[in-house]
Amino acid sequence: MSGPRDTITSAVRGAVQGVAGKVGEVVGRRSSGAQQTLTVGRPVDDVAALWRDPAAVRQALGDAGTVEADGDRWTWRLARPGSDDPVEWRTTLVEGGPSTAFPGSSVVLRWSDPDDGSEAASELVVVLREAPQDLGTEQVVRLDLPVPDLAAGALALALGYRARALVMTGEVPTITPQPAGRSADR
């Protein structure tokens, strides 16, 4: 039997190695496949407020999982394809302001496990910076999470896309539980 930490470590290592194998390790940044940048037509403060709100982030996660927060300690339960058992990921949210690591950034939000110092440590980083021409906010979602590497890019986009929708419209686009493809008895 392996514990949650082993599962996470194994999944994370697999994810990181998979991504790294494709695009190579680049000092100071991760695979572009697990990073998605979208422009959100609202001020940085509005977008940051959403990411600080566990209920809003839970909405943005959608069918990818769920998250609970106790202060700055956030516990994520992420869906695994083909499994009913989610991966649990315990993190601490650390917030920073403008950072030289992220040129032009106004807000940097980082969720990671402070006890995991390995190179393959999981993390979710959201970088917010003012967009040019009064377009609002450039929102960078960068993640190395305990999900299969092929899903990482898609999850980064889905998370960022839903967050943008939530900020812009107050709701997340969904077809659950009534997608076009029906499972109802016919």
Binding site: G153, A154, L157, A158, Y161, R164, A165, M168, P173, I175
Partner: peptide, 18 residues
């Protein structure tokens, strides 16, 4: 529209921008 496609991640690889 930038917000109404629940399957944006399926379309981005095809169109570049869903």
């Amino acid at each position: 529209c930038d917000t109404t496609n629940p399957n944006a991640a399926l379309q981005q690889p095809v169109l570049g921008y869903p």
